[in-house]
């Protein structure tokens, strides 16, 4: 038994198609992949919101002017 159904290369390659493992799980993979993608946005938004809130808390006019002058 193998994860892509091939146990040897004693085949004619013209008869072979997909060779990735766990064929038949493509739809599940896509659903999980989409969840991963959405999860990134959710987590990234949280991280960024936290950083911006911290930046607001730490605001210092003198430091800001220095940064503006630095360009």
């Amino acid at each position: 038994m193998s994860t892509n159904g091939m146990e040897s290369w004693a085949v004619d390659l013209k008869d072979v198609g997909a060779i990735y493992p766990f064929q038949g799980t493509e739809v599940i993979l896509v659903i999980l992949g989409l969840a991963f993608w959405i999860g990134f946005h959710v987590m990234q938004a949280r991280v960024e919101a936290g950083e911006l809130a911290e930046a607001e808390r730490d605001f210092n006019a003198e430091h800001s002017n220095k940064n503006i002058d630095r360009y």
Binding site: M1, S2, T3, M6, E7, W9, P21
Partner: peptide, 11 residues
């Protein structure tokens, strides 16, 4: 992930 797949085209 690749358990059982042939590692080589040789016997």
């Amino acid at each position: 992930m690749l358990w059982g797949q042939p590692s080589s085209p040789y016997e």
